[in-house]
Amino acid sequence: MLRLPAFALERPRTLRAALELLAENGQSAMVVAGGTDLLPNLKHELFDPKLLVSLAEIDELRGLCASAEGGLEIGAMTPLADVATSELARTRAPALAQACGLVAGPQLRTMGTLGGNVLLDTRCQWYNQTYFWRSALGFCLKKDGSACHVVAGGKKCVAAASNDSAPALMSLGAVLHFESASGAREVAIDEFFTGDGIQNKKIAPGEILTCVRIPPMPAGHRGAYGKLRDRGSIDFPLLGVAVRLDCSSKDVVENADLVLTALAAQPKRVKRASETLAGTKLGTPAFDEAAEKVAELAYQQCRPLANIPGDANWRHEMVPVWVRRTLAAAATEPNVTT
């Protein structure tokens, strides 16, 4: 078995205590939630923290509830399995519930948290490997090396954002709530991810993600998440498609959104999706035609790289197929929004 490196572990019971520990230890400390991303990465010697601050004992960070305005508030430490099976999440944020239910496999969804999923490290076939393997390769830009093996001569890391929740949360206009020893801040998830695969998240050392807020959805909201993967379970996305359709009482699309992930360092919103779909009625040829057009737009707007394992061209070919299928799923699933 691969060994974990040595580190100290603290399990504070309050958020305040956790924030203080982080402030005291600066860069040498890291937060651990479910550990399902971090611990494998530590075994691969991708990080070298002296201290891990576990959030597992902090009750205030766990739980999912309706917000006063009619949206959702999900504590960062809420297990993915809980989000996936929550009635509230399934009705108010169907794309998110589906995405969480498609992460990894059952055991990992029990340990893995929503916060950890939002903050998942980017992934790459040249990076998520053991120290020996990476040393035989000669390392890469993201860790210990100077060259990128995906883009020849590339000076920028393009490792793939691979968290299933991120595109769903983007389609829902979620807001992330952070706290640090020096205060709190909120950031719209649309502003949170960057195109830099080395660190694709704007999070400062010492910050803890405490809560994910989802605004209320209109009455006719529909959503779906489509995931392309090699097996029926366990695997990270080869492509993730989050769909939002806000419809009138007559099932006419008024507003739509489409966000793709697992292509590049940052989830990608498909431009002109909303305009194209707006005004079409679900279940009519007009909607299907618009969906075809959106699929075409998505195809043109992205170019997957050979960052994660698998055939990049095929992933590209799959974009329109999965966009169409996920739009169809959102349009045909019973509208559960209350």
């Binding site: 496999g105 076939q125 998520n128 490997q129 053991t130 393997w133 035989a136 390769l137 090699d230 097996r231 029926g232 379970s233 366990i234 695997d235 990270f236 394992p309």
Partner: peptide, 22 residues
């Protein structure tokens, strides 16, 4: 092997064994 002569994914995430649902 990949183009560097390295095993393309010597672990059970990259080397895909079917699960019960497959």
């Amino acid at each position: 092997l990949n183009r560097f002569g390295l095993h393309a994914g010597p672990n059970l995430l990259d080397y895909k064994l079917p699960t019960s649902v497959d």
